[in-house]
């Protein structure tokens, strides 16, 4: 359908735009379906998320018990539990780990086939990643949160804006994460073997993204620098702080606005790097 829209000259100026939206939608759908086939792995992964949820939650609650005012870094026990369990649910939605497809395709030379398509690789991979995230949201998010709610008192959002803000924050985090993964993978254009950068990313994104512990347990100045100077806290820390209502409404919105800034920056960077790489490929003949 959309192919005909694109190739036949149309009078309506909206035609090509509608066509590319349809194509983008179709790519999202294919990303979704691809993950939908790994049903058993989804189940296994959820189990693992829940086990790690228990481990992290018990440890953080023990920290809260000994902390001054039982409020380590300004979180009460319920907020900490929400932080951990929502984090376990979001882990495979944001998808910080495991994506090496671009690097693999560059290494094997399959990327040449992607460059022949009418849609650029950044757009195509972004759509597929959004499909993956959507699948993750529907299958992987609820179970850890439910397990957490059964075994621990969780923080219930007090402000109505928190829930839509959380949704926006997740969407932005997915895009930022995609941009980061794309840049890390794209180093393969220059290095041939992207294993090193991928390893650094895997290490750094978990700790500095806020998965293992809330970053606010670190010294204040360091956290501020991290938040403003790197996209990492925008991956998990921001959405988790939003749902745990760690800050007042204004700070929350400011943090999400910061995410928006990072999302735009990362996508622009990914596009720029891709164009540079393509020019290099053309010059060197692959």
């Amino acid at each position: 359908m959309d192919q005909r829209d694109a190739s036949v000259p149309t009078i309506s100026r909206l035609g090509p735009f509608r066509a590319s939206v349809a194509t983008f939608g179709a790519l999202i759908g294919s990303g979704f379906r691809r993950y939908a086939t790994y049903r058993q792995a989804t189940l296994a992964g959820t189990f693992t998320n829940v086990v790690f949820g228990f481990l992290r939650c018990y440890v953080l609650l023990a920290v809260a018990e000994g902390a001054a005012g039982n409020m380590p870094a300004g979180y009460d026990a319920e907020q900490l539990a929400t932080y951990v369990w929502a984090g376990q649910g979001l882990l495979s939605v944001i998808g910080i780990w495991g994506w090496t497809e671009l690097a693999d395709r560059i290494r094997t030379g399959d990327i040449a086939a992607d460059l022949l398509r009418p849609i650029g690789p950044v757009t195509a991979f972004l759509a597929a990643d959004l499909g993956r995230a959507l699948h993750g949201m529907l299958t992987r998010f609820a179970a850890p949160l439910l397990a957490g709610a059964i075994f621990f008192p969780l923080h219930t959002p007090a402000r109505w804006q928190t829930v839509p803000l959380f949704a926006v924050s997740i969407a932005l985090a997915v895009i930022i994460c995609f941009g980061c993964k794309y840049l890390v993978n794209a180093t393969a254009y220059w290095l041939q073997d992207a294993r090193g950068p991928i390893m650094l990313w895997t290490l750094g994104s978990g700790v500095l993204g806020g998965l293992y512990f809330p970053l606010r347990l670190l010294p204040d100045g360091f956290v501020t620098a991290l938040w403003l100077g790197t996209p990492l806290p925008s991956l998990l820390q921001t959405p988790l702080d939003v749902i745990a209502e760690r800050d007042g409404p204004v700070t929350q919105i400011a943090l999400v606005a910061l995410q928006l800034l990072w999302a735009v920056t990362m996508l622009l960077l990914a596009g720029l790097v891709q164009r540079r790489a393509e020019r290099r490929l053309v010059v060197q003949g692959g």
Binding site: L60, A64, A67, P72, Y212
Partner: peptide, 19 residues
């Protein structure tokens, strides 16, 4: 990876004298 594991413990103890 192991450095971060140990650092995590140090960070948690910043907030509390005893876990």
């Amino acid at each position: 990876a192991t450095v971060f594991d140990v650092l995590t413990v140090l960070v948690l103890f910043r907030a509390t004298p005893a876990v």
